[in-house]
Amino acid sequence: SLLLVAEPESIFAMPDPTVPDSDIKALTTLCDLADRELVVNIGWAKHIPGFPLLSLADQMSLLQSGWMEILILRVVFRSLALEDKLVYAEDYIMDEEQSKLAGVLDLNNTILQLVKKYKAMRIDKEEFVVLKAISLANSDSMQIEDVDAVQSLQDVLHGALQDYESAQHTEDPRRAGKLIMTLPLLRQTAARAVQHFCSIKQDGRVPMHKLFLELLEARA
């Protein structure tokens, strides 16, 4: 219940209507959106029960390794109702053609593979919010100071998922495990996304805001 309440509203991409469509424009829009989503997601993390009790250093470490997984999971969940399209924002939906134009076709196809998995499972909002919190708590940072505290956060969230499934999805006793088993693909997709945006950063043609840059550098 606390995670459902903590779930942030979607934000808008607001691509500049005066600039003609191009790869640079699309990537600028995505990077700007990601930067603003990150601010929202840091606020969200503070509402995960137990997260604010971690040391500030450990909170930072988890976000530095897990931020892209959180961004991607949010895009995935927003895209469940559509076919072969990614809802980066309510006003910024990418189809195959737009993905090609922006040079993110491979990346978006991997994200669509996740969408397909969750669609097949008919993931609900409760499962999505817990899975997102689990992906943060389980982001495998190598810099954790208090490993036991992070483990107990993982246990609490894992327990919440199991309790929910045993109450709501009695038809499939393995459903919690099935959801957890989608996390490797999320990890792989996030790594690919970070790599892609790091190379865009190196090209230097797309303006990026400071928080996005800071977190890209943390993962580089």
Binding site: V39, I42, G43, A45, K46, L56, A57, Q59, M60, L63, Q64, K210, L211, E214, L215, E217, A218
Partner: peptide, 15 residues
């Protein structure tokens, strides 16, 4: 950690 000033600041803000 000094490199991650914005993240640090956002986590410290009590929102």
């Amino acid at each position: 950690k000094e490199k991650h000033k914005i993240l640090h600041r956002l986590l410290q803000n009590s929102t």
